[in-house]
């Protein structure tokens, strides 16, 4: 049932011809493809339907200093990471909870720590931060630089 990554990448490029899914390798056994935020749901749907790539390990959220990045780490014998770049001003991406219900926790954490909006996700209650937390987004670069060095 496991398709080789080459097959998957070819099939994805065929299904989404308009997109340039840049591929690169990442340590230790990851292949990274850049995916724009607006086709994320379709790409993930395709991965699950056609290639049984259902296991999303986690979503990493980063602040590179020039923008936000979301990394969706999938795994099926080999690792496949979807790289979604988001500008600070348009930090919005559709939620994947319809396709993968298990994603809710990861999205809520990123919403809380980085301020990314996942349209369609229920985010009213705080997740890890205390109830009386102010609006600081702890993993944003400004938050790191504004504090004193330890």
């Amino acid at each position: 049932m496991t398709h080789s990554l080459e097959t998957i990448l070819e099939a994805l490029q065929a299904t989404f011809p308009a997109l340039s899914l840049d591929t690169r390798a990442m340590l230790t056994d990851e292949t990274v493809i850049s995916v724009p935020g607006d086709v994320l749901t379709e790409v993930v749907g395709e991965l699950i339907e056609s290639f049984d790539f259902y296991h999303l390990t986690t979503i990493t959220g980063l602040d590179t200093g020039e923008g936000l990045v979301l990394l969706y780490h999938f795994w099926n014998i080999h690792g496949l990471t979807l790289y979604v770049a988001l500008p600070y001003t348009e930090a919005r991406v559709p939620t994947l909870t319809e396709l993968i219900p298990g994603v809710a926790m990861y999205e809520r954490e990123i919403h809380e720590m980085l301020g990314v909006d996942f349209t369609g996700l229920e985010t009213s209650a705080p997740f890890l931060l205390p109830d009386d937390w102010d609006d600081t987004l702890p993993l944003r670069k400004q938050a790191v630089e504004s504090e004193d060095e330890v």
Binding site: M26, L27, T28, D29, E30, T57, T58, L62, H73, W75
Partner: peptide, 19 residues
């Protein structure tokens, strides 16, 4: 660089992403 490191912890798959 970036790295994704996975291991089988007693409770299951553990993942570390380091940049």
């Amino acid at each position: 660089g970036e790295v994704v490191s996975r291991a089988e912890a007693p409770r299951g798959e553990l993942i570390y992403y380091i940049r």
